[in-house]
Amino acid sequence: MKTQEELTEIVRDHFSDMGEAATLYVQVYESSLESLVGGVIFEDGRHYTFVYENEDLVYE
């Protein structure tokens, strides 16, 4: 099982292909040891929320 830090790095790496991230945040109260819930805000103003669970990243 991966730590939240490892899950955060996986998510950060995925979003790095989409541009320069200004902020990546984790909603600790919705996350667990198995999943990471949060969002990313890019330098150009785009904002996505995400759920990373079971090696699957879903974002909108």
Rank of each mutant, 00 (worst) to 15 (best):
V11T: 01
S16R: 12
E53M: 13
F15G: 02
S16T: 08
E5S: 07
S35N: 05
S32P: 04
T49N: 05
E60W: 14
L57N: 01
G38H: 02
S32M: 10
F15W: 04
S32H: 11
L24P: 02
G38R: 00
T3E: 03
Y25T: 06
L24E: 03
I41Q: 03
H14I: 14
E34G: 15
M1P: 13
E43S: 12
E60M: 11
V40E: 01
Y48R: 00
E60V: 13
Y29H: 06
Q27D: 13
M1S: 10
F42A: 00
S35W: 10
I41T: 06
E55N: 14
V37K: 12
F50L: 03
L57E: 02
E20S: 12
T49D: 02
F15Y: 03
E5W: 09
L7F: 02
E5R: 06
T3G: 05
H14R: 11
T49G: 02
V11P: 01
S16P: 05
H14F: 15
E53C: 12
D56N: 15
V37M: 09
Y48I: 07
L36R: 00
H47I: 07
V11F: 05
V51T: 09
T23L: 13
S32G: 10
H14Q: 07
F15Q: 01
E20T: 14
H47A: 04
G38W: 08
E5C: 12
Y52Q: 00
E43G: 09
Y29S: 04
E53L: 13
Y59T: 05
F50G: 00
F15V: 02
E34T: 09
A22M: 15
N54S: 06
Y48H: 01
E60S: 11
V26C: 09
Y48E: 00
G38E: 02
E60Q: 13
Y48L: 06
E30V: 13
M18I: 08
S16C: 14
T8W: 12
T3L: 04
V28S: 13
V58F: 11
E6Q: 11
T23P: 06
S35F: 14
D13R: 14
S16N: 10
Y52W: 07
L57Q: 02
V26I: 13
E20G: 12
S31K: 07
E60A: 10
G38Y: 03
E30D: 14
D56W: 13
T8V: 15
D56K: 15
Y25C: 11
E6C: 13
Y29P: 03
E43T: 12
D13P: 03
H14M: 14
V37E: 04
V28H: 13
E34D: 07
D56I: 15
L33V: 09
Y25S: 04
M18V: 05
F42T: 03
G39A: 11
V26P: 02
G39C: 15
I10N: 03
G39E: 13
R46W: 06
E34M: 09
S35K: 15
V58G: 04
T23K: 09
Y59M: 09
V11M: 04
D13S: 14
E6N: 05
E43W: 08
R46N: 02
D17Q: 15
Y59Q: 02
I10M: 08
Q4P: 05
V58W: 12
M18T: 07
I10G: 01
F15K: 00
E34Q: 15
A22R: 07
F15R: 01
G19Y: 06
Q4S: 04
Q27H: 12
G19Q: 02
T49F: 10
E53T: 12
E53W: 11
R46F: 06
E60R: 08
V40P: 00
V40A: 04
Y48D: 01
V58Y: 11
E5F: 08
F50A: 01
V58I: 10
S32Y: 09
G38F: 09
E5G: 06
T23N: 09
Y52F: 08
T23C: 15
S32V: 09
Y29V: 04
V28P: 02
Y59I: 13
V11D: 01
E43D: 09
T23D: 08
K2A: 06
T8A: 10
D56S: 15
T8Y: 10
Y25H: 06
Y29I: 05
Y25L: 06
L57Y: 03
D17M: 15
E9N: 12
H14P: 02
R46Q: 05
E55G: 15
G39T: 11
M18E: 04
H47T: 05
E55C: 14
T23A: 08
T3I: 03
G38C: 10
Q27F: 13
I10F: 08
D17A: 15
Q4G: 03
V37P: 00
S32T: 11
A21F: 14
H14D: 02
F50E: 00
E53R: 10
V58C: 14
E5I: 08
M1G: 11
E9P: 01
F15C: 10
E53Y: 10
G38S: 01
L7I: 10
L7C: 09
M1N: 12
V58E: 06
E9R: 09
E6Y: 08
E20P: 11
K2I: 09
T49L: 12
E43K: 12
V51H: 09
S31A: 13
A21H: 11
D17L: 15
